[in-house]
Write a protein that binds this DNA or RNA. Structure first.
Lengths: 144, 144
DNA sequence: TAAACTATTTATAAAGATTATAATGTAATA
DNA sequence: TATTACATTATAATCTTTATAAATAGTTTA
């Protein structure tokens, strides 16, 4: 079992949240997934193991995880939210063509936050940023 | 009639798009609106003038405007898209409490784009960024 | 101008994602 | 064990957006 899963389970315990088989499975899938799955991705992936599991269970658990701070919900232009359990600071690069999402580390844009505070008078709490483009596999092949 | 509306109508003409009364009204509302309305906001705002107008018309026209490049569609965490006809480069600061959206000018983060290109191998086309926090009217009153 | 064609609107249905509800099941506690 | 609280399931409901088909209006062409 990965360290990350261990830590996550510990966080659940500390929050007084029961660790049910379904909850464990959703969490495990999220952590081992390199992608950033949608609720439906998770639901489909666990269909084999839990044939009777309800979509509502997936959504409920994702909400619990989000409230505890275990996962981040990513809302892009497309219809459904994606879930990311990598809570370390990072940004995402998203392919316009195939929707692939790649993590991308960059020093946090703290200056933007403080300038926004000065200009707008908001108490700034956080920001989000994504970069869009065409990934390697979607680039047109150059002809010679 | 505002210059911006004039320009927008000109762009529609050049694109060979008919300027119907409904289309004109949607565009006018978008331009005069300081907010960043949802499709439903627009629909409700024009109910008086066009009692028979269909929601589909609002969506259709917003799609047309977007395709021409007259408006930007903003997708945040909440359920529905918002539409912004300010096409000049700017970012948004969003209030976590009341949802207010304030425009905010900041030099474009071109460095981020080029670094993302180098790290990920994507052909980067654009990026998005929003800053979140609490606006002035939603700040708790400090007690002395 | 009349006919033909095209774009647009309307009304409605359908799709898709998410949330709410109620009943059932399961674990924790006294 | 009885009680309570939490979770899951199944299902319905909600909400946003898109699709479809019919009706309408505008444009083009003969």
């Amino acid at each position: 079992m990965s360290d990350q899963l261990h830590e996550a389970l510990e966080m659940l315990r500390e929050s007084g949240v029961r660790i049910t088989p379904q909850r464990h499975a959703v969490l495990e899938f999220l952590i081992q997934s390199e992608k950033h799955p949608t609720a439906d991705d998770i639901y489909k992936a666990l269909e084999g193991k839990f044939p009777n599991m309800s979509v509502a269970t997936v959504y409920n658990n994702l909400r619990v995880f989000r409230e505890i701070g275990l996962v981040r919900e990513l809302t892009y232009g497309d219809s459904s939210s994606r879930f990311d359990c990598n809570t370390s600071d990072h940004y995402h690069v998203i392919c316009d063509k195939c929707g692939k999402i790649v993590d991308f580390h960059y020093p946090s844009l703290e200056e933007v936050e403080s300038i926004a505070e000065q200009i707008t008078g908001f108490d700034v709490s956080h920001h989000r940023m994504e970069v869009y483009g065409t990934c390697d596999s979607c680039k047109p092949v150059t002809s010679h």
